[in-house]
Design a protein around this nucleic acid. Structure first.
Lengths: 340, 340
DNA sequence: TTGAAAGCGCTAACAT
DNA sequence: ATGTTAGCGCTTTCAA
């Protein structure tokens, strides 16, 4: 039985060369924008390419150039909920926008368990991509090591946990959290709790650390009962806020370490009959740089994702070119919105 | 200046062959699990592979096999908001789980404008992937045609707009919407509005159509003022519900064509002082098959994503194998939850 | 400016 | 069961 649905073989360089009446090498030069081609030859090739609808075979090309011209953005997140966090979408959009007018391709890879992480390691080692941007690194995460050992150019979105010498781009999470706590202190609050991010992520740890520093510097107690761990989701924020109200019913302010969590925390506060900001002032942390995720808008710490995403790709491209890339920490700032 | 950070060249088949004391062909056979290899040779190769940490070069392999063993899941969505819809996450998770214990790789590609769509078309034609699953097709969408013309195996997630003969998997959206409307009718409601999905998407159109059919079959008016167009987001649902209340203040029930929109619609209803379900009964449409996205849980139409995602990959693999793939429509059903 | 030829790392006949 | 050989489609010296 013959295969009637077979795809038509795509044209090759040779066929273009024959049609254009030149050699393969010349066609290749035209394709690759070499200046060493006569205008006539260039034109002949161009028209042959158009006529045959020729598209270069990337496998063949990569085999010799050792380049794929594609980079991977890895979403390394066991928690499926978090996957629809606007923060992810913002990074994806930003990186993809940065790459839009280059001829680099961007592919997204997701890993939810160790098996999938190994699969991604394999994918990278097999030479599918020139480099990797890794998001959402957890404390016990094997992926950074897998990729580092494989010698794949790598940039982390977020400071690595163990001080390993990997290139990364991160916001000044600790400084941002300090700003938040100092803002609350400056409005006279003294019993300031915090809903943290997941503490197996550096952003969670750093933001908690900044909160603690600010309170201690002001001589205010940063007691364990004032801390509840969330998971960066709305539901998690609501849950953590409920814990906090239980453990520290006297709190008069709270720093919530991400905006989706802040939305959940506000819901809990309202359900508990606490007025915001009169009874409890709230400061959020705007992961996604999307204004007004909640109503009324909070005072938030803004991290400039618009600055971070170009840096991510810049550091990666530098490494792909064999240069060394300095990690970067971008400043955060306090944004006061209408209420709170 | 020498490049000091150059990556160590990865070992090749030849080096493995030399170390194992066999020919390249034998190594290749071992790698590809051919039965025509002696146990001794197999063992020698295995140990050489381990020793050299050999990983096959996929470019070289693909060049001859014409297979990349990777498929692309394309998120074709201009509206960034929608990108964090749990529906997307569910499909991604489902397809990725289906592929987890195969040796197929999954890459996600996103397109937000025509330029990015063209880039994806190019990516596919260059031979990076064996096939494409395309999500979120809009009415004026060039991507299905681009990919079809390129001869890439293709499965749409959602019925194509213009009746084109493309393989697809879809839920019975029209039937589901009928179920929803009939349920509301059966509880005695007669002024039943609908918040639709975007009407440039087939799911939006079909669900509107099902609503209309059910009302007309029951001899109930399905007036334009009872219809407000949303965009599948929570904010859009809230907005559309507000329009609806304006145009049809007398409505006593509403079919909201997606769960995120239902959450928004409920917020609007409550803000307007309408009690749910006493004043206004609500039925949602559970795109993400995640129970209880809102509180209290709604009666919803459930589409079985758990069935759809294996079908998507099945149809695609069939096409990749050169067979013809029959499109599939999976049934929806009504799920009555606590309230409403 | 152009062409001829070698070769990237692998698979797949074919021969043994 | 194993080795030899001929490519896959492209880039890239090297000559001309």
């Amino acid at each position: 039985m013959t295969d009637t649905t077979a795809r038509p073989a795509s044209p090759t360089l040779d066929e273009v060369a024959v049609l254009a009446g030149v050699s393969r090498a010349t066609v290749s030069r035209v394709i690759n924008d070499s200046p060493r081609v006569s205008p006539e030859a260039r034109e002949a090739v161009r028209s042959a390419v158009a006529q045959l609808r020729y598209v270069p075979n990337r496998m063949a090309r990569s085999l010799v150039t050792r380049r794929t011209d594609t980079i991977a953005l890895v979403l390394n997140e066991p928690n499926t909920q978090v996957f629809s966090d606007p923060f992810f979408a913002s990074i994806v959009r930003g990186v993809s926008a940065t790459l839009a007018d280059t001829d680099l391709n961007l592919v997204l890879l997701t890993a939810r368990d160790e098996r999938e992480q190994q699969k991604i390691g394999r994918y990278a080692r097999q030479g599918h991509v020139d480099g990797v941007i890794l998001m959402s690194v957890h404390s016990n995460d094997p992926l950074p090591e897998i990729l580092e050992e494989a010698g794949i150019p790598l940039v982390l979105c977020g400071r690595p946990f163990d001080g390993r010498d990997l290139a990364y781009v991160d916001a000044d999470n600790s400084g941002g959290a300090e700003l938040a706590a100092r803002h609350l202190l400056s409005t006279g609050r003294r019993r300031i709790g915090t809903v943290t991010g997941p503490l197996d992520m550096i952003a969670g740890v750093d933001r908690l650390h900044g909160w603690r520093s600010a309170l201690q510097a002001a001589g205010v107690e940063a007691a364990p009962r004032m801390v509840a761990e969330g998971d960066f989701t709305e539901a998690g924020g609501a849950r953590a806020m409920a814990e906090l109200l239980e453990d520290a019913p006297d709190l008069d302010a709270v720093f919530v370490a991400s905006d989706p969590m802040a939305v959940g925390a506000l819901r809990t506060l309202r359900a508990a009959g606490r007025r915001v900001p009169d009874d409890v002032a709230v400061v959020g942390f705007d992961d996604a740089a999307v204004a007004a995720v909640c109503d009324p808008p909070l005072t938030t710490v803004a991290q400039p994702l618009g600055d971070m995403t170009p840096l991510l790709t810049e550091l990666l491209l530098r490494q792909i070119d064999g240069e060394r890339a300095e990690s970067r920490i971008v400043p955060t700032r306090l944004v006061r919105r209408a209420s709170a």
